[in-house]
Simulated scan of single mutants.
Amino acid sequence: MQKIVYSREVKWAAVKDKLSGEMTNKEIMEKHGIKNRAQIADWMNWYKNNEFYRFDQPIGKQYSYGFRNDFKNEQERQDHQLSQLIMENEILKKYIEIKRGLEKKK
C-alpha cells in the first residue's frame, strides 16, 4: 500500500476550512481529496501546537528532538539543543532524587 502525500497547500486549506467552522470533516475530505479523517486531526494538532514546519516535511522525514529544519542559523539550532539537554539533565536529576527517596523508605 502506497502512502498518500498531500501538498502543503492542501494541508493549509484543510486547516483553514476546519477553523472557519463552516464545513464538516467529511466535506473537507471530499473537497480536498483527503482519504482519512485522522489526517485532518493531525494537521489541526500541528497548527494548535505551532508546529508549522511540519506542513513542509516530506513523507518519512519527521524531524525529532532537536533536528528540526526551521532554525534561522546554526547558533539558534545549538541554543535549542542546549536548552533541550539542560531540561533532560534536570529531569534525570529529579528522577534520581525520587528514586533515592523511595529506596530510603524501604
Rank of each mutant, 00 (worst) to 15 (best):
H32P: 01
E88L: 13
Y65R: 13
S64E: 09
Q75K: 15
K16I: 02
I98N: 05
E9H: 12
Y63A: 11
K72M: 05
L102M: 07
M1F: 08
E51D: 14
Q75F: 07
E30P: 03
D79N: 14
Y65G: 05
K26E: 15
A41H: 11
D17V: 01
G66Q: 07
K94P: 03
L82N: 15
K16M: 05
V5Q: 13
R100P: 00
N25E: 05
L102C: 09
F55K: 00
I40K: 01
A41T: 14
N36P: 02
Y47Q: 12
K16Q: 14
A41N: 15
R8Y: 01
E27P: 02
Q57L: 03
K105F: 11
K99N: 07
I91M: 11
G101R: 08
Y65N: 11
L92Q: 10
E74Q: 14
F71H: 09
I34D: 03
K16L: 05
N45L: 12
V15N: 01
Y53E: 13
Q75P: 03
Q78D: 12
E88Y: 06
Q57V: 00
Q84K: 08
R68G: 12
W12N: 03
L102W: 08
W12G: 00
I4L: 13
N89M: 09
A41V: 08
N69L: 07
M44Y: 08
D17F: 11
E30K: 15
L85R: 07
Y47D: 11
D42R: 13
E90H: 14
K99H: 06
I59F: 08
H32Y: 15
K61S: 12
I28C: 02
Y53R: 10
L102E: 09
Y6F: 05
F71C: 05
E90T: 06
S7Q: 04
H32C: 02
K61D: 11
L19T: 00
Y65A: 12
S7A: 03
K99S: 09
W43F: 04
Y47E: 13
G66K: 03
E30Y: 12
K106T: 13
D42H: 12
W43V: 02
Y47K: 07
Q78H: 11
K72Q: 07
Q78N: 12
N36R: 15
I40T: 01
